[in-house]
Simulated assay, not measured.
Amino acid sequence: MRPVHIMDRLLLGDNQFFGINHMSEERARAQAMHFQDTQSIVDVIEVALEEGVRTLMCTTHDRIAEVCDRVRDDPERYRGLRFYPCMPYAHKYANAVTEHGMLGALRSFLPDDGALEAVVRGGRSVLRKDIEGMIPLLIDAEMKMFRGLQTPVIFLQNVVVDLLLGLGFDEAFAAFDRHVRTRYGAEPGFITMNLPQLLDRLDAIGIGNPIVCANINAMGFRMSGGLEAYERALTQRIFRPVAMSVFASGAIAPRPALEWIHEHARVESIVFGASSRSSIASTVTIARELWGPAVAQVS
């Protein structure tokens, strides 16, 4: 039996660091201004660690690469911090191609070991439309910034997951699963805007009890297929749910949002965004009241 990584109940997300808010453009701009420098991001991560939130579920944004450098430079200060990388970060690739051209962008993202071989392998894969060859190349390029750090779960972003769902390229999910497990000793996770359909596809290709992150909240906010379909999946399907958009981008207050999750959704983890000590501490306090003191433990 494969070893299972036990995820913490609370995971700190990174949308707020990069000005992403699905409800308010004004709030998104304010957050982007607040987190213009890497130190401001690191400050929030340090507060989260002090409050017992030990996992950062993050994109592979260039600023996260800077955070990774900070953590490597001072391992004792950030002892216990884990990263759950979510890949790919599409804007990063688009910007790099614009600035450096296709070949230059590829060189900048490839891992240091066997880079030339990876280019050749990737080129052949494009020509042959060989999904199995492209998926490892993508993962290795994205994981370059996390070298030497704890990455027990690696997620495939919804921008790719849902595209593959639409195209019917289910084998890509299996290729991602295999490479994450064999190369990195990590568990694969999948982020989606269509939870019921993804569970059907993963089940069909033999990926059992998968880690799946989806929007789960009392409003049905950004839950493709509807709230009832999600509730059926959460009660009837075998998988490891990670809930995001629990607060519906601020439309639901933290206490009623988390109370609804506790009462209606069998979730293993909750991803939440926070910009201050007070919001992190408040979320941790409510979660401890609902799920017990082990929700967030200070090392």
Rank of each mutant, 00 (worst) to 15 (best):
L12E: 04
D14E: 06
G19H: 06
S24H: 14
E26L: 10
F35V: 12
Q36H: 08
D37F: 04
R54T: 07
L56Q: 12
D62N: 08
I64Y: 04
R72L: 07
D74S: 12
Y78L: 10
R79F: 03
F83H: 05
C86T: 15
M102V: 13
G104I: 02
S108R: 10
V119L: 13
G122S: 10
K129I: 00
D130L: 04
I131E: 06
G133F: 00
G133S: 05
I135S: 02
P136M: 04
L137W: 14
D140A: 15
E142V: 05
M143I: 08
M145L: 02
M145C: 05
R147Q: 12
R147N: 09
L149E: 06
P152A: 09
I154W: 04
F155R: 11
G166M: 11
D170C: 06
F173T: 03
R178G: 00
A186G: 04
I191K: 12
L195K: 06
Q197H: 13
L198R: 11
G206E: 09
N209R: 15
M219D: 10
A229H: 04
A229C: 01
A229T: 02
E231W: 01
L234W: 01
T235L: 12
T235F: 02
Q236S: 13
F239R: 12
F239V: 07
A243Y: 06
A257C: 10
W260H: 15
H262I: 03
E268W: 01
V271Q: 01
A274L: 07
S275R: 12
R277V: 10
S282C: 06
S282Q: 15
S282P: 00
R288D: 00
E289N: 07
E289Y: 00
G292S: 03
V298S: 12
